[in-house]
Amino acid sequence: MKSLLRTFVSVAILLGVWQLVYIVGIVPEKYFPSVLSLLAAFWQMLMSGELAKGELMTFSRAALGLSAASLLGVTLAILADLYPVFGRGFRYISDVLQPIPPAAVVPMAVFSLGLGIKLYAFVIILVTVWPAYMNGVAALSSVSPVQLAAGRSLGCSRLELLRHIKLPAAMPEIFTGIRYAATIALIAVIVSEMLAGRDGLGFMIFKKAFANRTPEVFALMFVVAINGVALNALVNGLRWLVTGWHIRMMERTE
């Protein structure tokens, strides 16, 4: 409930800043419409039902893609931790792939992957897998040696060490990675939708822009932004479940 309130406050802050910029009038109204016309555009899209349809597509794609990519990233990080040779080798691949901008590779990927589900999977995994993987590797390798020694002296095997000591200790940092991944997963979905052009918020933004409907475009941008919060709430909820002890331990009194 509290987080819902905070989201509401945040939206209000952003809309307020927007309206302020509008009132100051640096940019002509035609290109920077008032909050009122954004709301009108939002209402119209809501009533016609197109917004709900686009929203459902985009959010489910982002959530699904993020889950798959995060699982993959953590799995790879665990593999890299268990098998250092794989870790070193995969590091070369990740170093090579990570700097590639999706905007550069996506239009070329369309030739091989088409405009369907394969394209989405490729783009989302390509960009979203790294934060979970990188934070995972970093966190797994920096688990305190004291903890590990304690585990070993209790007779833990390598796998048990991983399961009971390393992973729990690494979870907070992994989730920070996933949280970052959540935002870029959404970006990846929007960019793909702009390109694949069938449905979703990204497609709607592109279609409205080409119809010269500025208020609709910006209203949709706000909707995308709110999706960011929703996706993060999902990640934070999961994080609380998985790493609750860490947060509780770290809770400080100001």
Binding site: M108, V110, S112, G114, L195, A196, G197, R198, K207
Partner: peptide, 19 residues
């Protein structure tokens, strides 16, 4: 009907067999 962003993307869609 699949609207896409630009001419090259239309050609790409054909080349991939998706259109």
């Amino acid at each position: 009907f699949i609207p896409v962003q630009g001419g090259p993307a239309v050609v790409a869609a054909l080349a991939s067999g998706d259109a």
